[in-house]
Design a protein around this nucleic acid. Structure first.
Length: 402
DNA sequence: CTTCCACAGGAACCAGCGGACC
DNA sequence: GGTCCGCTGGTTCCTGTGGAAG
């Protein structure tokens, strides 16, 4: 696809940069799909087994896949779908394959748009009603006359879209089709998503279920080692680096993606400092940098009022032990007045606080103080300094703290 | 046992926008 | 050019609630 030249460029640069560390850095970036997936053999086998009827032109069961982040769900699905595409081509069987990330395409319309596009159906990206798009897709599929496998990653984002019945519609799409058949693969890392799911959708989607357990430290070690050979030159990593990272990541819910990120970052730190070995010290430094990076990235992307609310929280938590919604409301109003901005309603502020919680920059807990009401305790998840650093880059907010 | 605080969070709705359709 | 559509980012109005105080 269009990514190809970029990857090549990346490879090129990692070679000519006279890197003493990286043989191929691209192996360690997060969207890289490895050829070999250690400790997921059973899951792969199972999924292949479930989907193989497609090769006989009959409809495989729907699959629901659950597992925490960084447990290889996406990698396994893409891997298997890739193999399926290849095998079907070899056997001259037509199988339609669609992969959607519902976090990216998080509305009914955009999901349908993606389905259409990946099946080579041209659709306008706005203007039509959802049902019109649905009918066009059904129509198109009828003409295709094949089994279509639609996988929806992070499907919980569709469930959250309150009154959307898209999932229900999709699970019943086969009754609108006679020449083609559709199989759904739902992927999520949110257990709660299951509860919100329409029971009819749940039972339909759950024809087959696959659970991905978190990796333990040993498995993470294998995963990291399996990438090391391609990524690094020989003897660049000090012996204890990989076990150290694996142990850290295992403690943190066994997230392989984070482990790989950390490994790359550690390599970058060593490289930047001109060393030819990566040590655990570099890992520690990398850990710190990742924290700052993510904070910076999240904060700078925030909309204005979210920033002001975050600023209120940051300022308050310098002097107060416990910060609650009421405090924030007051502070926020103050800051808005200073900046000459209209204040948002408390309802909206409360929603924004939830949004900040969702992106992980703060954490909240509902507090019942009896006579003194019910409120939310809000705590910063990031060093206050990192937040100020991010605000330094924002003219308007910066002007507050001169 | 009752009262009542200080919000949480659901539901309905709205304005404005970019865009398709006819 | 009028009408319809969905999305974003809000508002308004509302009901619900755990437990200290009285």
């Amino acid at each position: 696809m269009s990514l190809e030249p970029l990857m090549n460029a990346q490879n090129l640069f990692s070679h000519i940069g006279q890197s003493k560390i990286f043989k191929n850095r691209a192996v360690l970036v997060s969207d890289f799909v490895p050829v070999h997936l250690p400790h997921r053999e059973t899951e792969i086998k199972r999924l292949v087994q479930i989907l193989s009827p497609a090769l006989w032109q009959s409809r495989p069961n729907n699959v629901f896949i659950y597992g925490l982040t960084g447990t290889g769900k996406t990698a396994v699905v893409r891997h298997v779908l890739g193999m399926l595409a290849e095998e079907s081509k070899r056997r001259n069987v037509d199988v339609g394959i669609v992969y959607i990330n519902a976090k990216k395409d998080d509305t009914s319309y955009r999901v349908l748009f993606q389905i259409g596009r990946q099946l080579n159906l041209n659709l306008p990206f706005t203007g039509l009603s959802v049902s019109e798009v649905y009918f066009r897709i059904v129509d198109h599929m009828e003409k295709l006359k094949k089994v279509v496998i639609i996988s929806i990653d992070e499907i919980d984002y569709l469930v959250r879209d309150t009154n959307s019945n898209l999932l229900y519609k999709l699970t019943r799409i086969n009754s609108d089709l006679s020449n083609s058949q559709v199989t759904l693969i739902g992927i999520t890392n949110d257990t709660k998503a299951l509860e919100y799911l329409d029971p009819r959708v749940k039972s339909s989607l759950g024809e087959e279920e696959l659970v991905f357990a978190p990796y333990n430290a040993d498995q993470l070690k294998d995963i990291l080692y399996s990438r090391c050979n391609d990524a690094f030159f020989e003897n660049v990593l000090e012996e204890n680096v990989v076990p150290y990272i694996a142990a850290l990541a295992a403690k943190d819910h066994g997230d392989a993606r984070k482990a790989v990120d950390l490994l790359r970052k550690a390599g970058e730190v060593a490289e930047r400092e001109g060393r030819d070995k990566v040590s655990t010290e570099d890992v520690k430094e990398a850990l710190k940098e990742i924290e700052v990076d993510t904070a910076l990235e999240v904060v700078t992307k925030l909309p204005l009022h979210s920033k002001i609310i975050l600023a209120s929280i940051a300022e308050l938590s310098r002097t107060k032990k416990i910060v609650v919604t009421g405090d924030i409301l007051l502070k926020y109003t103050l800051l808005c007045n200073k900046l000459g901005l209209e204040v948002l309603t408390p309802r909206r502020v409360s929603e924004i606080i939830n949004e900040l919680d969702m992106v992980g920059i703060i954490s909240t807990k509902i507090l019942n103080r009896g006579r003194y009401g019910r409120t939310k305790r809000i705590a910063l998840n990031v060093e206050v300094d990192n937040i100020w650093k991010a605000f330094k880059k924002d003219d308007l907010l910066n002007s507050l703290y001169q």
